[in-house]
Amino acid sequence: MPCVGYNSAYVPPEWIAAHQLQPWRPTLRISDAATREGVSQDGCCSCARAFVAEVSSRRDVVGIVVAAVCDQIRRVSEWLIDPSSPPVLLFHVPATWQTSAARQCYRDELLRLGRFLEQIGGQSPTPQQLRHNMMDYDRERQAMRAMFDDLRGRPHADAVAKLHGDMTEDDSPAAPDHATDESASHTPIALLGSTVPRYQWWLYDAIEQHGGRVVLDATDYGERGLPRPFDAQLLADDPLEALAAAYLAMPHVRQRPNDGLFHWLHERMAHRHVRGLILRRNLWCDLWHAEVARIKASACVPVLDLDLDVDASAPQRALGRIAAFMEMLH
């Protein structure tokens, strides 16, 4: 089945699948091939660059959907526009999630996405087909939620990746060898931030090696990036509206105001008895960077601010900080 690459949890894979196309959200395996000729890396988000590199590398991609969830990815999407490349749709996700106008805008964007999918070979679904697809995805997400108590860190991220069509084996490098903590009880950790690219999944290992365990993955690929279950009545009456309502409600640092993120985070952290919060952010990401002080002030638990880029020294620096943070928590 022809494949459609996309970049954000705000793009519903069930909407793509309902158009008889294969949704694929790359987990970002390419760390260093993402530099565009002549463009300085200074100031450019490494994840945005990595998305461009990875989505361009797969030959069966017939279309690319870039959700403009930040200014960086909005601007990077222009790099993809090339006569020899698959068509690109810039998908607007309103930041003012709380207004009815925003919901209508998001719904209109879904319809525009639908027309784009049809132009690249997809088939418009009937309401029944859409409902069917939505229920399938909803069931999968429900199953995943049920596993949250058992599935931690790397396996959890891998399961979410598969839900988004990244079916390849997890071959990303492990954390550099350290003595694994053998103690029976691990310190419950919440991991917050945007995308943890697959080339940095050693983060999960490193946390475990130092006696922690990610019990709340609040990154874009984690639990935060899963929409709430669809409203049954709405699903029956108007599946597209149910889709829009569930997806636009996902908490994100980019929302204005973004209090919803903080409420969501605090509620889940309390429920999972989190004792430490690690904020993993991309070096040039202003949206998360600006909130560091607020996150620290409101978290009620120690917070580690981990700014990471793609350079080779990143793991060593990060490992040192994680080790110190975990020692502090112990």
Binding site: C70, D71, T96, R256, P257, C285, D286, L287, A290, E291
Partner: peptide, 26 residues
């Protein structure tokens, strides 16, 4: 908000977080 610079949007959000409510428009 929306198609605006991230740094500006983030700074404005911090100002709201400091107790200055903002009417955001998209």
């Amino acid at each position: 908000v929306g198609a605006v610079c991230d740094d500006f949007s983030a700074i404005a959000q911090r100002i709201e977080g400091l107790g200055h409510p903002i009417v955001w428009w998209e």
